[in-house]
Write a protein that binds this DNA or RNA. Sequence first.
DNA 1: ATCCTCCTTGTAATCGATTCCACGAGGAGG
DNA 2: CCTCCTCGTGGAATCGATTACAAGGAGGAT
Lengths: 335, 335
Amino acid sequence: MASIKDVAHHAGVSVATVSRVLNDHPSVRADTRDRVLTAVAELGYRPNAVARSLRTDQTRTLGLVISDVLNPFFAELARSVEDEARALGYSVVIGNADERPDLQDHHVRTLMDRRIDGLLVTPTDGGSPLMLDAARSGTPMVFVDRWIKGVDVPVVRTDGTDAVRDLVAHLHALGHRRLAIVAGPAATTTGRERVEAFRSALHEFGLALPADFIGQGDFQAESGRRVTARFLDLPEPPDVIFAADNLMALGAMDEIRARGLRVPGDVALAAFDDIPWFVHTDPPITAIAQPTGELGRAAVRALIDRVEGRTTDSVILSARLVTRRSCGEPEGSKP
Amino acid sequence: MASIKDVAHHAGVSVATVSRVLNDHPSVRADTRDRVLTAVAELGYRPNAVARSLRTDQTRTLGLVISDVLNPFFAELARSVEDEARALGYSVVIGNADERPDLQDHHVRTLMDRRIDGLLVTPTDGGSPLMLDAARSGTPMVFVDRWIKGVDVPVVRTDGTDAVRDLVAHLHALGHRRLAIVAGPAATTTGRERVEAFRSALHEFGLALPADFIGQGDFQAESGRRVTARFLDLPEPPDVIFAADNLMALGAMDEIRARGLRVPGDVALAAFDDIPWFVHTDPPITAIAQPTGELGRAAVRALIDRVEGRTTDSVILSARLVTRRSCGEPEGSKP
DNA sequence: ATCCTCCTTGTAATCGATTCCACGAGGAGG
DNA sequence: CCTCCTCGTGGAATCGATTACAAGGAGGAT
């Protein structure tokens, strides 16, 4: 592969001049510039980004450590992050943590070794020593969707409180009184917040959230299935199951179907995070939709602000309820 | 951030010695090694991968240019690629082409500028000049899932011919005779091959595939919807629609549902690529399942073989039919 | 005691860029 | 005609690692 030296030699100039041409430095005579450009074209030369990064101490690359690529919500988030970053002249390197803190650490370490300019993270836990170090060490960092308490890092996330209240209101109106939740890991903010929002919405409607009706999941389908099984084995099972993410909702459906029960006849089902498939499931699933694309884009803008030395605040967007048939017939419509 | 010089200074040795310790060079006295290791720990030193790559001319990074992260099939492929690569000591940088040749080129260029050690691609088209160049230029490269004709690059893919024949047999047994296909872009091999497999399977059963029954899609949901609309507007619409990927199947469902038609009563539906949601759609969708994980892992192994100077052959895995209810009741079961 | 090895370590070149500094040519001003 | 500036360019240092080569010291053989 041709290097800047080859180009310089080919054009009969010094490497300094080639570099100037490549970086649009003004003080290069037009004909010299042309000669260099011709040499570049003839050799098919492309600057070595590795060497450039070493010298300039910037990679124009952002790291994104995501909880789970197989979760359509995060896939969409990753996509919007990449789109916005590209528009702003940055590349994105994605690390998939698969909801595992050890893998998350692995990716954070690898990305920092690669000297990425900034890091976007959806933490899968309460903050490993490594993550805390990274946050303190000065690497520009922004949390998306989930965050870690007590760490001074801007957060771009969705507040689902109102949407959850709307959901509970909807469920209450349909006559449901025994509502259970498949929660995410308590180590994640979204894991805790969604339970809290649910609990306080229930309280508003004079309902309690007994311990039996809180199932500990891990945002993966299998845990949704396991928790649902536990719920359904209860002497007095819930009449609504609210899954804190779409994969656990999938697991819940698996279990409900395996038992030959019907949604919403036997149990109603709702999920946090809306995905295209929810329109076509049997029945279509009522869900809380996040502005995923905007979340990703805002996160990138916030991160790049930090990278380029500007300051940023946290951003909080809001979610909304999308009513379908999985909790019972919406008002005024028929089977 | 501490550099190797700081470590050397702190430990009272030269940078060469630090480097030797870090790379497990045998000729370092035990106590020197300990001193260096202590310094490394005290400073929290991590080698700069950029500098190391520049010197060693290898990044231990693989590039993966994928057609569309939002497609669950590719998300799973990406995940398995990353898993296997990590197990073998490599990182993966993913570029999402969004089925757009220009974006694909952008990512190929960016990845090559970053001097990735090898490139894994699912081409979205017949091969841009850039891609052809890259293939010829000596960058180790392997195609996954899709490939480009006339380029000497190993391919790791699934042969769906038998599964498609099984599907057609299944459809034929259920009494369907008017079968249509929502094809992928003709510029992609999977776009063409799936149509060809379908056509020759139909032929085997004495059926034709009229031009009207081949709809040009682009592997995205919206095109599935558009093509399905065209099919349903035909004076004699098909009684089966086979979508060449899962997103176009989603689009097809959107359109069918929008018209108030029922699956499989009014039209049957089948898809290439199986995804977890297909179990829970209304009705569950019959699909052709690829061994996605194995595909990704085999591709990584093939690529790393090339990177490390071994030779590789192409790998062809096979797909299988998963029968559900979207084409009619399977033999011996009831509604 | 001398010389030869082997072991351990340091010095310095190198990878491919960027960028500070210096230098020569040419034009303007005195 | 000389001095000073500006403009365009080249030389060389630098980023943080790796590694070939050299060198110093210890120990063994003669």
